[in-house]
Simulated assay, not measured.
Amino acid sequence: MTPERLAKIRAVLDKRQPDLTVLMERVHKPHNFSAILRSCDAVGVLQAHAIPARYGIPDLEEAESLALKGKTFNETSGSAAKWVGLQIHPDTASAFAHLKSQGFQVLAAHFSERAMDYRQADYTRPTCILLGTEKWGVSPEAAELSDAHVIIPMMGMVQSLNVSVAAAVILFEAQRQRLQAGLYDQPRLSSEHYAEVLEHWIIRHARGQ
């Protein structure tokens, strides 16, 4: 590895936000799944979370993509899958239990009576953005468990954006708020965690993964 490449890896890791993440609840189309990971990398998400589309969801055959098991991603992700960790949860309840134990507020991208403009949320807090399946959106269980619902105001005829586009819009608002708050100004990981992630990234880079 060249010194320049190592410096680039360190510069990226210096900006990683361990307290900003997404939870993809049964997002089953590989191009959407991969595009969300690409946006995560772009704003400095350290690790994303996903619930595979395996339980009681229409189009189950399509949902069996290996992309949802954290093993392969299509070309849409570029190299994002190398740099964004992915934790798979067996179901919605266990995913929420894990995130809550880590102190995350969960903001569901979900239209409801209690939904607020996505720009009104405070993303400087430890935040997980919940994104639902392409056709049906966030499940009733996840909507109920979420701390708040956010929506992206639409001025046209369509009622919503593609899930990966919506993820990008919300993530970049989170980035904007965090930049203003100075949360990208210095490394956010502990020295031990930083060293662990750096070693992992260097090894993956060396293996060409």
Rank of each mutant, 00 (worst) to 15 (best):
P3D: 14
A7S: 13
Y118R: 01
Q175I: 05
L37T: 01
V169M: 09
K29W: 07
V158E: 08
G70E: 06
D122V: 11
A108W: 01
V43D: 00
P90D: 09
S146W: 02
L171P: 00
Q209I: 15
S160P: 00
Q120L: 15
S94H: 13
A11Y: 11
D122W: 14
Y184S: 03
F172S: 06
A167D: 01
V169L: 09
G44R: 00
E134K: 07
V197M: 09
Q159Y: 13
E4G: 02
E61K: 15
D117Q: 09
V158L: 14
G70D: 06
E61I: 11
Y118T: 02
L179Q: 11
I129T: 00
L99Y: 01
N74M: 08
L189R: 02
R54G: 10
R188F: 04
V197H: 03
R204Y: 13
F73E: 01
V12Y: 15
L20T: 03
H31G: 03
V12D: 10
A108I: 06
G182V: 08
F111V: 12
S112P: 02
S190Q: 12
F111A: 13
E192R: 12
N74V: 08
R204I: 07
L20Y: 05
Q186G: 05
L145S: 05
V165E: 03
L171S: 03
F172D: 07
D41Y: 05
A181I: 07
G137F: 04
Q175C: 10
I9W: 07
A168L: 06
A108P: 02
Q105D: 13
A11G: 09
S139I: 03
E4M: 11
H28K: 06
K82A: 11
R38S: 06
P18D: 07
D59I: 02
Q175F: 07
E113R: 11
G156V: 08
I9N: 00
T127P: 04
A95I: 01
L99R: 00
I203M: 12
E144K: 14
G208H: 13
A63S: 15
Q102T: 06
F73P: 00
F104L: 09
V12A: 14
G208K: 10
L13F: 12
Q17S: 08
R176Q: 12
V138S: 04
V158R: 14
R5F: 15
F104A: 01
L131T: 00
P187D: 09
H193I: 09
L183H: 06
